[in-house]
Simulated scan of single mutants.
Amino acid sequence: MRKIVVLGLVTLAAFTIACSSGNGDTKSSVTGGSSQNVESAATEKTTATAKVGQTVTLTNDTLGDKTTVEITVANPKQFAVEPGDFGSKPDHGVFVVFNVTVVCKQGTYSANPFNFKFVAKDGTVSEGALTVNFKPALNATDLSSGQKVAGKIVFDVPKAAISGGKVQVDGVGLDFDKPAAYWAL
């Protein structure tokens, strides 16, 4: 019985050391101009807020598996109707379309249009809109170090939500469900 307890304690100690080698928190920083830091409601860390067009670098180190990715959200445009002969109209007011570029600098990253949300000034969150005529669309793509992908993301939001709104990207790794950075309009 004593051997089992000792073995269990050794295993627990090894697991604790391995887990403490990286806390898993996604960190964000902005390149190309000034940024703001805003307090995240869920944690005490800060989340970078960039201007649309700036590049944000996300880093995450979970259990020694480091990921570094650069994301740029740029060129916002509004549409009252989707382009094309059979373009749909937005349900909530206006389509807001952004060009997104994702560059994996280290590790691996799953770029996905569903990693992004539109957050209105009042805190209302909108997921990406399902459209077909804003091309090229940002498709879900697994990237390795040195690879990149670019495409458009689309949100269907009330026109009044655009002023003071921002685009949110989710964190990397275990932080997939937490805001990692914002681009302010």
Rank of each mutant, 00 (worst) to 15 (best):
V5R: 03
L7C: 10
L7R: 13
V10M: 03
T11R: 07
L12K: 07
A13N: 01
A14G: 03
T16P: 00
T16R: 09
A18E: 05
C19H: 10
S21N: 10
S21M: 12
G22H: 00
N23M: 03
D25C: 14
D25G: 10
S28Q: 00
S28P: 00
S29G: 02
V30Y: 00
G33D: 00
S35K: 08
N37S: 06
E39M: 13
A42G: 02
E44F: 11
K45F: 06
T47H: 03
G53M: 01
T57W: 00
T59E: 02
D61K: 11
D61C: 06
L63F: 09
L63R: 12
D65N: 15
K66H: 03
K66D: 11
V69M: 01
T72N: 09
V73E: 01
N75S: 14
N75T: 11
P76Q: 04
P76L: 08
K77W: 04
K77D: 08
Q78R: 12
F79P: 06
A80R: 14
V81P: 08
E82M: 08
P83D: 04
G84D: 00
D85I: 13
F86H: 15
S88C: 10
D91L: 13
V96A: 07
V97S: 07
F98Y: 06
V100I: 02
V102E: 03
V103G: 06
A111W: 03
A111E: 04
N112Q: 10
P113A: 01
F116R: 10
V119G: 02
A120S: 10
D122Y: 02
E127W: 12
G128A: 13
L130K: 15
L130V: 12
N133M: 14
F134S: 10
K135A: 15
N139K: 15
D142P: 12
S144G: 13
S145C: 13
Q147K: 05
I153D: 04
I153L: 05
I153C: 05
V154D: 09
P158N: 04
A161V: 10
I162M: 01
I162K: 05
K166A: 14
K166R: 15
Q168I: 11
D170P: 08
F176V: 14
